[in-house]
Design a protein around this nucleic acid. Structure first.
Lengths: 390, 390
DNA sequence: GTTCGCAACTAAATCGATTTACCACAGGGC
DNA sequence: GCCCTGTGGTAAATCGATTTAGTTGCGAAC
């Protein structure tokens, strides 16, 4: 739709506008100084004394030549990069991508970009990327589920972190409310024997959430049995970890009718383990996940889960950081912003069975030698469950 | 672990090293010229005449003061930004995130960073972001499932695009092989009546893949029945679209025993629709997905799917682009790089039932009143055709 | 005692924009 | 005639590094 209009100006009829024009070149073409162009193009107050006619000449020429100021030069001069750094543990796990998506929406709208680096929870990589981002003159950092040490000498907004750090604004979920929502839901359905899968030790939310769960359990008069607590181990973003944890819970031989998992991904793995052991979800065991990632609604069964407003958290992080930058370094800033979870009830929870489930049988079976690729039986065994419960 | 060691030098005992040191400052401190420091620090050949003692002095001071060259200044001078731009349709849908992850791995290793922008298939946004990235002096672009026009005046690597464009290297899956893998698998299991869900019209792979499917069907002597072909519509990354498409297929009243879906996400939605209509997967209907996103292995049932090596494609894109940059603009470059799919057999496919499934019952049930946002009947004509063909 | 060559540096230009400080000229008031 | 105030600009410094083109001083060669 935009035809070449190079013929208008003989001088550039040969040169396609592939090389950007500099201010100086444009100024030369107009027989004016770069200063004048700069003043007019930036609508600076000092341009008030320049007559409209000249302004028009400049503006027209700029459009004609497709002049765009060199971002690097401008940044160097202004000592601003209009760029933020984002540190995430892993890009491809759904969680970070969702947060990033919220960050991006807000930043691009405000004329900022961001540089991402994923560190896989490796402390050395975190430090190295922080330096690299600092060198690239990012104006601030957003740390998603990433530990921040002191002395980062940049404004930081941390998502899902809970330590107080100088210069860091924490954005965190109200985990008390989250735990209460999930447990109240289960209790209302008649569940009393509830199993838990805790997060990995390196995960920022693990401890806070676990404390919240215990507090909520106390309030609800629920017993948290040590043998009904498993913990995710390992760094993979796959449901495998939840699968392993759920096998442990089954193997412990302590009956339970519901599971509160650390996240949706591990809940999915757990459901898989339950099915293999001939328990149906939700008829035999109810499962509550956490996060509400995209696929949660389309699992089989669709997951009941505690929704974290991840996208909103990303957006809030971006907003907050930009606000802090605008305010300047000296200014005060919020230390903590709390966002609210929601309970999304789908079909992985249902009223508790009245007959107690005993799963000691599984402990004999032991763990399968290879969880290998994805090979494992699953729905075929489900129907067998009732029969084998002799 | 790193204590303050400011006391070593009286001059900066008060100033914490929060402000970066410039070359000039460092030079002043050493009573040398910035030139000398630059030569030594960059290990330039011209530094050969500088005695080792001086070099050591410089290197020591640089370390001591934590000198890091200003990236913006250096970029401006060298006319290189060591930054690429990446255009994706959507960050949070699993596909792009996986590709990005591969891109990132390679780029960060090579000292590059990248700026991402997601455009949601909006042509104006694509153009706007392209300009912004260009202005930021990215050295090249990686376009993931994003249409590239001519005249982008930057080296481009396009993932999953199929048009030949000046300056663009395409990275594409071998769709012929992909289609063959999937259909051969189904045929081997005894399926002859196979339904298809095509991709959205705006999706780059849709047409190429569909052509490949038809070719493969021809070779395998399979009939592609128009009433067993549905198409995804709408821009959402949720399985909802697949759900809608599958309902249409069921409503068409034409029996089938297998479905080849455009991607895993839509396959999951389709399975949901089948389950709701009381068909079990894979006993009644086998389903093959596409992509092999993370969650595919942990769906219920785990999805049989054609794996695209997304991470590898991202890596290949980054590699190729960097190679092209190193070679210079004049040099020739590959127009097309093809990567190979794999068939991952899990549990959403099984031998075809011998008794023919008739699903006309569903057509009475009709579509649910609200499919909310994406509500559209699309094949209403198709359904009507059945009834009216009495 | 020039001159050449080399060691050890440095001044200044450059990248491209912004910004401060200044200049030249016109017109009006005293 | 002199001063003052606008107009309508421009020259030059600046951001921080890189790079080209020198400079200085000294010992050796002729």
């Amino acid at each position: 739709m935009s035809r070449k209009k190079t013929s208008r100006n003989g001088r550039r009829s040969k040169t396609l506008p592939n090389r950007p024009v500099s201010l100086k070149e444009l100024a030369g073409h107009l027989d004016l100084s770069p200063t004048s162009l700069s003043l007019v193009l930036n609508d600076s107050p000092a341009a008030s004394s320049i007559p409209q006619e000249t302004k028009d000449r400049i503006l027209t020429a700029a459009r004609e030549f497709g002049y765009r100021p060199n971002f690097l030069a401008r940044s160097l001069r202004a000592q601003r990069s209009y760029t933020l750094g984002v540190l995430v543990p892993e890009l491809s796990d759904g969680y970070s991508a969702m947060v990033l998506s919220g960050i991006e929406d807000h930043l691009l709208e405000k004329g900022y970009f961001y540089l991402v680096a994923s560190h896989r929870h490796d402390a050395d990589l975190i430090e190295q990327y922080r330096r690299l981002l600092f060198e690239r003159r990012v104006e601030g950092l957003i740390a998603v589920d990433t530990p921040c040490e002191e002395g980062w000498s940049l404004p930081v907004v941390a998502i899902s972190r809970h330590e107080e750090r100088e210069g860091v604004t924490n954005i965190a979920l109200d985990h008390d409310r989250a735990a209460t929502l999930a447990l109240e839901h289960l209790v209302e359905l008649g569940h009393r024997r509830i199993a838990f899968i805790k997060g990995q030790v390196f995960s920022s939310d693990t401890e806070v959430r676990w404390q919240a769960v215990r507090d909520a359990a106390l309030r609800l008069d629920l017993l948290v049995r040590p043998r009904l607590v498993a913990q995710l181990e390992g760094n993979s973003p796959s449901p495998e970890l939840g699968y392993v944890a759920a096998r442990e819970l089954l193997a412990a031989g302590e009956p339970f009718t519901a599971l509160f998992a650390f996240n949706d991904v591990s809940a999915v793995g757990a459901i898989r383990a339950f099915n293999e052991a001939s328990y149906r979800v939700p008829e035999d065991i109810s499962v509550v996940g956490f996060d509400d990632v995209y696929s949660a609604a389309y699992q089989n069964p669709p997951l009941t889960t505690v929704k974290q407003p991840l996208r909103q958290m990303g957006k809030l992080a971006a907003e907050t950081l930009l606000r802090r930058l605008a305010a300047g370094t000296g200014e005060s800033y919020p230390k903590l912003l709390t966002v609210m979870p929601d309970l999304i009830v789908r079909q992985s929870t249902s009223p508790a069975r009245t007959d107690v489930i005993c799963n000691s049988s599984i402990s004999q079976a032991g763990l399968p030698p290879e969880l290998s690729k994805q090979k494992m039986i699953h729905s075929s065994t489900r129907r067998a469950s009732l029969e084998s419960a002799d």
